[in-house]
């Protein structure tokens, strides 16, 4: 089938304003959008820029705004997008070129939640024990691939770029609810601060946007509950 791609383009330091470019490619309905972007880049216009690597929804490189919603280009098939497809960079991050956005501040917020296990006690010679139920408690938030789809779909983030954002909170949740972690109080200070979880207005865009199916809004809600009522 023939597919028309309408792609928002911009190059830092060269273009004053973004502009739209249109391309037409021949593709299979079961092709990924990423395949269509490659068809453009490899055989029509080598100047088109986007990130990608694993091409099956695990590395988190190719989150972008596709027909108005954040998706991974490698995890959405053309048959689900229609024959006219609009592709834009994620909203709320500065654009470097075309679909490539600045990730440094996003990663800074990830570092801010101190995303590593804090267990004060000496580890045993073998593994620390954890029941399957305790492990299940935070399973959902271990799936995060830091693609940015949730944070850049969040109106609270758009209006306040200092907000930690859903992705960083998901990563914090993963440690907050890990039975092996001993830094609950410290973590709650960061999460309860001015630009922490209370900026979330429970809009659910993040949950819709997550390509890993994480219930992001629910995870944020659990952190809010922990702040109000203590962790359970």
């Amino acid at each position: 089938m023939k597919v028309k791609l309408r792609i928002k383009r911009f190059e830092r330091g060269k273009d004053r304003e973004p502009y739209w470019a249109e391309y037409e490619v021949e593709a299979e309905p079961t092709d990924r959008l990423l395949d269509a972007l490659h068809a453009v880049k490899w055989y029509q216009d080598g100047t088109l820029a986007f990130r990608r690597s694993c091409a099956h929804g695990v590395c988190g490189s190719d989150a972008m705004l596709i027909n108005g919603v954040n998706r991974l280009a490698c995890k959405v098939l053309l048959k689900d997008l229609g024959q006219r497809i609009t592709v834009e960079p994620m909203r709320g991050f500065a654009v470097i070129k075309d679909l490539v956005v600045e990730f440094d501040r996003f990663m800074e917020k990830y570092r801010l939640v101190e995303p590593y296990l804090k267990a004060g006690s000496e580890p045993p010679a073998k593994e620390r024990l954890q029941t399957p139920e305790e492990r299940e408690r935070f399973d959902d938030t271990t799936k995060c691939i830091l693609c940015g789809a949730c944070t850049t779909s969040c109106p609270s983030f758009w209006s306040n770029p200092d907000y930690l954002g859903p992705a960083a909170i998901v990563q914090a949740h993963r440690f907050l609810f890990d039975s092996r972690d001993e830094a609950t109080a410290e973590r709650l200070v960061v999460l309860g601060a001015r630009d922490g979880v209370w900026r979330c207005r429970t809009i659910y865009n993040c949950t819709d946007a997550c390509p890993r199916g994480i219930e992001v809004t629910r995870a944020i809600g659990e952190v809010k509950k922990a702040l109000l009522l203590g962790k359970r």
């Binding site: 590593y116 296990l117 267990a119 580890p123 010679a125 073998k126 593994e127 620390r128 024990l129 954890q130 029941t131 399957p132 305790e134 492990r135 935070f138 399973d139 271990t142 993963r174 440690f175 890990d178 092996r180 972690d181």
Partner: peptide, 20 residues
Amino acid sequence: TVYELEHWGLPFSRTPDGKI
């Protein structure tokens, strides 16, 4: 090495008695 990863927080799946 596997024990070191566990000590660093890697969320391994668990046996019913809590081991990796």
